[in-house]
C-alpha cells in the first residue's frame, strides 16, 4: 500500500535520507530502527509532508503523495504522531479527539455548538469509544495540558487514530514510558492493526519493536542497511555494528 522509491532529503549539505526504498503491505506493522540521527524521523516527516523530499517518490495506494499538502495527505489516509508530544494544550481531551475527526459531516456542522456534539452529536459514541480505548474515559473534559505524561501519550495515539487513517506513522511512541505503559502501548497498537490500520513504528525500545513488528528496516546515516523479520535483524552483523560500533576482532 505504501511504496517509497529512492527517497532522498538533504538539509543543506547534510544528507538525512539517501536513496531510501521501502515497501509496506496493507495490514503490516513495520518497524524502522536505527541509531540517533539515522533519518528515521525525517522519513516520517517526508511521508506526512511536513517538508518536501529532495528527490524520490512516495506512492500511497497507487497515488503519488509528493504534490499533496500535509492536510491532503491526512485526507488520503496517512496520520502520524510526534516524537515530542504534540496536542492542543488549550483544548479538552474530548475536543482534541473531536477536531481530529475530520469527516464531511463535521465540516458541514462547523457552526454548531460543541456542547451539542458532546451530549448527543452523531460522533459522540465514536469519540467516547476512543476515550475508552485510550483509558481516558473519565478525563474527557480535562484540558490536554493538565494530563500526566503517559496520558498525553495515549491521547496523542488516539488523536492520530481519530483521523481514521489507513496508514499510521508512530514516531517513538514509547519514549519515556515505563514497562507497564509499554505493554499497554503494545496492546493498543495491535488493536489499531485489527481495526485495519497499517503501521510504521519508529522506536528505540527494542522489546516493543521485536515483539510487535512483521518486518524491520534498519537505517544508518540515512540509508537502509538491512531489512527483514525481527529475528533475522537481531542476528544481522551490520545492524549490530551500526548500533555497537565495529568490533576489533573482525
Amino acid at each position: 500500500m505504501l511504496e517509497v522509491k529512492s527517497l532522498s532529503k538533504n538539509f543543506g549539505g547534510v544528507k538525512a535520507v539517501r536513496e531510501l526504498d521501502l515497501a509496506v503491505n496493507a495490514g503490516d506493522i513495520i518497524g524502522v530502527i536505527g541509531p540517533n540521527g539515522s533519518g528515521k524521523s525525517t522519513l516520517v516527516n517526508l511521508i506526512s509532508g511536513v517538508f518536501p523530499a529532495t528527490a524520490g517518490e512516495i506512492i500511497f495506494q497507487g497515488q503519488s503523495l509528493s504534490k499533496l499538502s500535509p492536510h491532503a495527505r491526512v485526507k488520503a489516509g496517512v496520520a502520524r504522531t510526534f516524537q515530542n508530544i504534540r496536542l492542543f494544550p488549550g483544548l479538552t481531551v474530548w475536543q482534541n479527539l473531536w477536531v481530529a475527526r475530520n469527516s464531511a459531516e463535521d465540516t458541514r456542522a462547523e457552526g454548531i455548538s460543541y456542547r451539542w456534539f458532546r451530549k448527543s452529536g452523531p460522533v459522540k459514541n465514536e469519540i467516547d469509544a476512543m476515550l475508552e480505548f485510550s483509558g481516558l474515559a473519565d478525563k474527557g473534559d480535562e484540558l490536554a495540558s493538565n494530563l500526566a505524561f503517559g496520558e498525553q501519550r495515549r491521547l496523542e495515539l488516539a488523536r492520530a487514530a481519530a483521523t481514521k487513517p489507513s496508514l499510521l506513522l508512530l514516531d517513538e511512541p514509547a519514549a519515556g514510558m515505563n514497562h507497564d505503559e509499554i505493554r499497554d502501548l503494545d496492546r493498543r497498537i495491535r488493536q489499531l492493526r485489527q481495526q485495519g490500520m497499517t503501521i510504521i513504528l519508529i522506536e528505540h525500545v527494542m522489546d516493543l519493536v521485536m515483539g510487535i513488528t512483521d518486518r524491520i528496516a534498519v537505517l544508518n546515516f540515512g540509508s537502509k542497511i538491512a531489512e527483514g523479520e525481527p529475528a533475522a535483524i537481531q542476528e544481522n552483523k551490520s545492524v549490530q555494528e551500526a548500533y555497537l560500533g565495529q568490533s576489533d576482532d573482525d
Binding site: 506526512s48 511536513v50 499538502s69 500535509p70 492536510h71 491532503a72 491526512v74 485526507k75 496520520a79 502520524r80 510526534f82 504534540r86 496536542l87 492542543f88 477536531v99 481530529a100 475530520n102 488523536r159 483521523t163
Partner: peptide, 9 residues
C-alpha cells in the same frame, strides 16, 4: 503544523 497534520486546511 499539528492542525495541518490533523487534516485541516
Amino acid at each position: 503544523l499539528l492542525t495541518r497534520v490533523q487534516g485541516l486546511n
